[in-house]
Design a protein around this nucleic acid. Sequence first.
RNA 1: GGGCCCGUAGCCCAGCACGGAUCAGGGCGUCAGCCUCCGAAGCUGAAGUGCGUGAGCUCAGAGACCGUGGGUUCGAAUCCCACCGGGCCCGCCA
Length: 631
Amino acid sequence: MKFLEFQAEVEEVLADSCRALGHKGVQIDVGSPPSDAYGDLSSAVPIRIAKEQGRVPGDVAVEVASKAMELAKKSKYIGTVSPHRSGYVNFGLKHSRFVSDSIAAICSGDLGAVKEKGEVVAIEHTNVNPNKALHIGHARNLVLGDSLVRVMRYMGHQVQALNYIDDSGAQVADIIVGFRFLGYSDEAPAGTKYDTYCGDSVYTRVTKDYENDPTLREKQSFVLKEIEKGTGEVAEYARGIVRKILAAQLSTCWRLGARYDLLNWESQLVHSGMWEKIFESLKKMGYVKFQTEGENKGTWVIPDPETGEEKVVVRSDGTAVYVAKDIPYAAWKVGLIGDPFGYEAYPLEQPGGVLYSTTLDGKKGKVRFGGAHLAISVIDTRQSYLQRIVSKVLDEFREGSSKRYLHRSYEVVSLSKRTAAQLGYTIEGNFAHMSGRKGLYVNADAMLDRLKAKAKSETRRRNLSEPDSWVDEVAEAVSVAALRYELLKQDPDKMIVFDIDDALQFKGDTGPYLLYTYARARRIIDRAEGKPGVDEASAAKLTKPQELRLAKRMTMLDISAETAEEFLSPKEIARFAHELAVAFNDFYEGVPVNKEEDAALRSARLALVDAASRVLAESMTLMGIPIRDRI
RNA sequence: GGGCCCGUAGCCCAGCACGGAUCAGGGCGUCAGCCUCCGAAGCUGAAGUGCGUGAGCUCAGAGACCGUGGGUUCGAAUCCCACCGGGCCCGCCA
């Protein structure tokens, strides 16, 4: 995008100026000035030089600016260079050319996405145990992961979006115990989603039943063994239930805009033999050791990367512990082990692309997964310790592997006191952690439905003559925008204390604000009589601060996208989109477009609106927010 | 006991990665305005104390101690250390 070109020019001019003035080895940096009255980019380089040489910063700034001004004469976009007495040098854009080039590029479809195909990146997210419906905590994981997938694709990577299905764990066993030993129906009542039924009614009840009758744990243990074995009537039955729940969960995921390339089944990972191979290698390397005495007698252990103490990986009964299942999966992702899987289309139709599933039937199709250059696991912060262990083991396996296996951690979503109270729970502090077992959580579908109900009335109020189906469809988009933005905009390291009433807010820094802003922009285009169009002469007429601010802002998506990529942090896109929307609304209030009488100016403004709305749409797409011309 | 994360206005958040410029930006909530004018899911402005139901009157007058205290620096919300408060993790559970 054009702003990055401008920035590159400024950096080059600065570096050349310093060299010409004999200042060697100065770190060249540029940034945004505190106010655009100073210019469009600024640098503290003279301050650093002054410090080194014991001079007055303002004087050095004058020298540097004067040299830079000379060198900037032949530049494309640098219009002004000015020193400031504080020691900063400020650079201003050559507005007419910058604005006309920017608008032309964007309107021709060049939004700055990286086009050449880069590295293969595997991104794992969602990973919900297939025994319950998604709650908003799972939704945070999905939104973070899916947005990251979108950003990485935008940045040119070949992305594999992975969804790990733990179909052989205790949580699945629990609901099978409920169906097979406690007489709970394995059919959901009419009108209830299957995953919701299993989570709300079966799982929570079985949890209580365990408390009342500890001998039920034997049933759980039996079911777990049957599932692990993988054959037999109970295992087949569990397999059917898991798939039925997964189908219900996936419909929610798709509703939220997420798309996956592959389902990785834990049961297949376990049966693939990968762990045994890795275990043998680690034994040969002497990294895992057999304990012949002490409290871990009879187990195989690895060194704990934090305490230096022992960490059991294989129990004395020969079975592998939880973290040991993650190791082969991680090794498969980054290609440290031969790929045992085949891949086939999963028998569910995913909107927007085929969903594959691993197989172990020995047939190898054309599609390949795993073996990525970079693997990113979106997993909440409570698993950071275990992820560090996995990472460490990969390094033992091959030096430097941990650099290619990244944990994108994030804090959990808890519930506000008010929301907990609405759900019938009285709590002590200001928030409560969600709990699937206790039934204390906000269901993602239910939240979307509440958002949708509100969006429906808001939309209907503004569109009295539209058919219900249209209103319904728009309300659905608004609800997804609201929830995704709410869960994405906050820093991943901060806990979200979710409050239903606050989340129902459509004003201010929200997803609906972005949708509304986009619709406003499109309305101008719809109602225009002439065509949008701009050249350097008409762009020169775009001199109002609102016009310049909007034009500049819309060329800065790439800066946010690069930061989002570097720090695996899609919230950068949210911040950008909000700033762009604010800039647009400021323009909208203060600058007429279709009522402008000067035809050239009108058409230039129209082109500006068109370009800005395209960039806004792109940034929303990167967040998985649906685009609607009218809402 | 060891480790990780958070602490910014009544509330919620941005800024911290790369320390700098005159007001540390938003949002919510509160109050007051703006639709003969491209969609009001928007925009603009206000919010020191005391008294008064209130128009207002009186007095006072600058500034969110960026959790607290140190340190580094010409310069710290940003870097370092300690402490305080909150959350999480450290199992032959998953």
